[in-house]
């Protein structure tokens, strides 16, 4: 009997529609990471920046009553915190992964601390009204597909729009050519008059900004409140998405949707109950992330100098 309920149209529509919602933070995060990895900086600290974005967007939205102000502040928080990471890893040339790890610990502790200080120890944080779905004219009328893709909140459309814009900048503009050159061969890029530090730091700030919006889309787009460790490893899932997408923002949208759907399935099956314990479904996205890294992660051409600090006067 279960098979019948699993695969009817209503269920699938609801599932994928929720999958799109779940994918929004993943898309923001991975598009940001595409750019920063192209320039040679790994987004290990994405997770922490997402947490910052999530907390501050929630906080400011609650204080000001404006969701948009919240998103803005979330983006700002992501960007400011990423400045810290950029300074340490690009300018001071420290190991990017260690900085990232430490920053994530810091972010988890700090947002947790602020949350407790501001909203107290009880978990019953005040909920706020999230962004409401805006059906797109005409497109949302398409059966099934319209319901899934064109009946979403504004952040979803924004995510796809930004992904397309990023794709265009990376492929069609000189900037994209320069960014990829920095990640590929920073010495040569420098000889062409490109400031490697400036490009890497700016790319990383863009990534932080996107991670901040990703966090905002969690609190203001789906959940409606901030809970501790709300990002739950999404920052790292983004890293896997970027590899799966071969550093292409458009494919990242599709891959993000895939991961979002898995997450949606997990939630649905938890609620609906199934023969398997719900913990299996909670663990599923993480398991798939590992599988993706293993299966999609070798024999690929990553930016050549990814994760390698650049020294201006190196010989």
């Amino acid at each position: 009997m279960e098979g019948a309920t699993l695969f009817n149209t209503v269920f699938l529509t609801a599932l994928f529609s929720s999958g799109v919602r779940q994918s929004v933070p993943l898309i923001f995060g991975s598009v940001g990471d595409c750019v920063s990895e192209k320039s040679g900086v790994m987004g290990i600290s994405l997770e922490g920046e997402m947490l910052f974005g999530a907390f501050f967007s929630y906080f400011f939205a609650l204080q000001s009553g404006s969701l948009w102000f919240g998103v803005l502040m979330g983006a700002a928080a992501g960007m400011v915190s990423s400045m810290l990471v950029a300074a340490w890893s690009v300018w001071l040339r420290q190991d990017q992964s260690i900085i990232g790890i430490m920053f994530n610990i810091f972010a988890a502790g700090f947002t947790n601390f602020l949350n407790r200080m501001i909203f107290g120890t009880s978990n019953a944080n005040i909920s706020i009204e999230t962004f409401q779905p805006i059906p797109l004219p005409l497109l949302s009328k398409i059966p099934v597909v319209g319901e899934i893709f064109f009946h979403q909140n504004i952040l979803t459309y924004l995510a796809v729009l930004l992904a397309v814009l990023t794709f265009l900048v990376m492929r069609k503009m000189k900037l994209g050519l320069q960014i990829a050159a920095v990640g590929e061969n920073p010495k040569a890029a420098q000889a062409c008059g490109i400031s490697v530090y400036r490009y890497r730091i700016l790319c990383y700030l863009f990534c932080g900004c996107m991670a901040g919006i990703a966090g905002a889309s969690l609190t203001l787009g789906t959940v409606g409140t901030f809970t501790e460790a709300i990002s739950a490893g999404r920052g790292f899932i983004c890293l896997a998405i970027v590899i799966l997408a071969r550093w292409n923002p458009l494919i990242a949208v599709a891959a993000g949707f895939g991961f979002g759907s898995i997450q949606a399935l997990q939630i649905r099956l938890q609620v609906q109950g199934s023969a398997l314990p719900y913990q299996f479904f909670v663990a599923l996205p993480y398991l798939i992330t590992v599988l993706v890294l293993v299966l999609a992660g070798h024999n690929i051409r990553a930016p050549r100098e990814l994760g390698v600090p650049f020294e201006r006067e190196s010989r």
């Binding site: 739950a232 490893g233 790292f236 890293l239 913990q279 909670v282 663990a283 590992v290 992660g297 070798h298």
Partner: peptide, 23 residues
């Protein structure tokens, strides 16, 4: 074997272990 980043894998394994123990 696959040159997979141990950073991401060990982290993901944390989440998976949590769920196994929870179960």
């Amino acid at each position: 074997r696959f040159k997979t980043s141990e950073i991401v894998v060990t982290l993901m394994l944390n989440y998976i272990a949590q769920q196994i123990i929870s179960y």
